[in-house]
Design a protein around this nucleic acid. Structure first.
Length: 475
RNA sequence: CUGGGUGUGGCGCAGUUGGUAGCGCGCGGCGUUCGGGACGCCGAGGUCGUCAGUUCAAGUCUGAUCACCCAGACCA
């Protein structure tokens, strides 16, 4: 054993990007794809996404959102219908110019997002107020040719859902925009255990073509924020560009009011960064592919039979449990493997437990050991999973709060950035020019405008200001 | 696109002054093991990113090229 070399995980407090790629690789979440910035979701990583999908899709269904699918390839001319939209996406488009060996008459864009192709068809489908609202979501992949990529956090192809709605009134569209953000916040907090702030993007940071953008911003241990998902309100801007018009109840023509909203596989990146530690991944129970793993001390028949019984009893109450019966790996190796993979509860099963009628376990989140009577099995585990979920959210909330500081003036702002980073809460009068200057000087930009207002002083200009903004360096 | 770095079995690396590739892990077989990353024996696996050049001879020298990684400007 002495000469056996451990698979070493770099310290999380060291080079965070080394740690990040190492933990991803060791936990077997992904592999690099052949094209720049592309990645392969391996089964364990994809299973996390499936759990997120399941939870979010359930929210959509309750709201009456229906799933549909639109084409991957979009005629270039569609993108050009709305000038802000095309300007925002042009630099990162992947374009198909040859098909079947022949040059195409019109280039086809690999969708960077689907507003244009969906709204082209919404225009055909919507004639009357009776056709509204249109409430459609699609689960798909999009391609944005990013300059710098990082697994999960920023990849040139990523998986997401994009919801696109059209409404007869601005109020109804607004309601949908906030509903979507509320649903996202629920998923982030209750499933991913990632607490953050919701707010509104600045003019310069909002989605290309949107009137405004709601965002959920989470704080990572590096002190950098992560734009975690967004919900956009288009007003009638897109409807005018795509001619989505309808006859209202008074018999007059009007343009539809629209929203779009998306949550991507970036969420998994945030999860890894926030909750991982020096031992590897820590997965919140609700999205963990394996919630409880039973590791037998010896792979002999008695122990394996009991292990399977335990797993079956857990399955019956809806717990994703698994027995690690793999041959050729020692007990200790398996324990470490599942710690790296972040299974919330690891049950250690040997002859001792069987004769004592006990269950021994380790909580992955706190790395603490415990045991309880075998006959309390399903209930105790359900309780544990619940506790872990709650505790992980609390950790995230604590980090968010600790990493939120207020600055009265620019000097203090810069001092905080230098010493801590994190979110900096300030009074500020929105101004794209000062925003650009601040960004150039400090690398920090607006995360969002919070939904609160008070009398204060603009931290940059010293003038009276009511709006409260969060600034941060971000991923 | 700018700056830095790296390309050698699946992964991590070594390879002196050019002489025709080696180590650890992993992998396959057999056996012994199994309470926190076990061990023995046997074995498989590489035209050294690509192209061109110098040379009797190139992983090693020269030139070009491609890819990826890290740090910046863009983004979920």
């Amino acid at each position: 054993m002495a000469q056996n070399e451990k698979v070493l995980l770099p310290k999380k407090t060291g080079d965070l990007s080394d740690w990040y790629t190492a933990v991803n690789r060791l936990a077997d979440l992904f592999d690099y794809g052949p094209a720049k910035g592309s990645m392969i979701f391996k089964p364990y990583g994809y299973a996390i996404w499936e759990n997120i999908q399941k939870a979010l899709d359930a929210e959509f269904k309750i709201r009456g959102i229906e799933n549909a699918y639109f084409p991957l390839l979009i005629p270039m001319s569609y993108l050009e219908r709305e000038k802000d939209h095309v300007a925002g996406f042009a630099p990162e488009l992947a374009v198909v110019t040859v098909g079947g060996g022949e040059k195409l008459e019109e280039p086809l864009v690999v969708r960077p997002t689907s507003e244009t192709i969906m709204y082209e068809y919404y225009a055909k489908w919507i004639q009357s107020w009776r056709d509204l609202p249109v409430l459609i979501n699609q689960w798909n992949n999009v391609v944005r040719w990013e300059k710098r990529t990082l697994p999960f956090l920023r990849t040139s192809e990523f998986l997401w859902q994009e919801g696109h709605t059209a409404h007869a009134t601005a109020e109804e569209a607004r309601e949908t925009q906030t509903w979507a953000m509320d649903a996202y916040v629920k998923i982030y907090r209750e499933f991913l255990a990632l607490d953050g702030y919701t707010g509104t993007k600045s003019q310069s940071e909002r989605f290309a073509g949107a009137e405004d953008t709601l965002t959920y911003e989470t704080m990572m241990p590096s002190g950098k924020s992560l734009q975690s998902c967004t919900s956009h309100y288009f007003g009638q801007k897109m409807a005018r560009a795509f001619n989505i018009s309808f006859q209202n109840q008074d018999g007059k023509q009007d343009f539809a009011y629209q929203t779009s909203w998306g949550l991507s596989t970036r969420s998994i990146g945030g999860l890894i960064l926030m909750h991982g530690d020096d031992h590897g991944l820590r997965l919140p129970p609700k999205i963990a592919p394996v919630q409880v793993v039973v590791v037998p001390v010896k792979t002999d028949d008695d122990i394996l039979t009991e292990a399977e019984k335990i797993a079956t009893e857990l399955h019956e109450v809806g717990v994703r449990a698994q027995v690690d019966a793999r041959d050729g790996e020692s007990f200790g190796f398996k324990l470490n493997k599942w710690e790296v993979k972040g299974a919330p509860v690891i049950i250690k099963l040997g002859a001792k437990e069987i004769s004592d009628g006990k269950i021994s376990y380790r909580r992955r989140d706190s790395l603490t050991d415990g045991d309880f009577a075998r006959k309390k099995l399903p209930a105790k585990i359900l309780q544990l999973l619940d506790d872990i979920q709650t505790d992980m959210l609390s950790e995230s909330t604590a980090l968010r709060d600790n990493e939120t500081r207020t600055a009265k003036d620019y000097a203090e702002f810069k001092k905080i950035l230098k010493e801590h980073k994190g979110f900096i809460k300030v009074h500020w009068n929105e101004n794209p020019e000062t925003e650009a200057k601040i960004k150039a000087e400090t690398k920090a930009k607006t995360s969002c405008r919070l939904d609160e207002a008070s009398d204060g002083i603009d931290f940059y200009t010293g003038e009276p200001a009511k709006e409260v903004w969060l600034f941060a360096q971000s991923y």
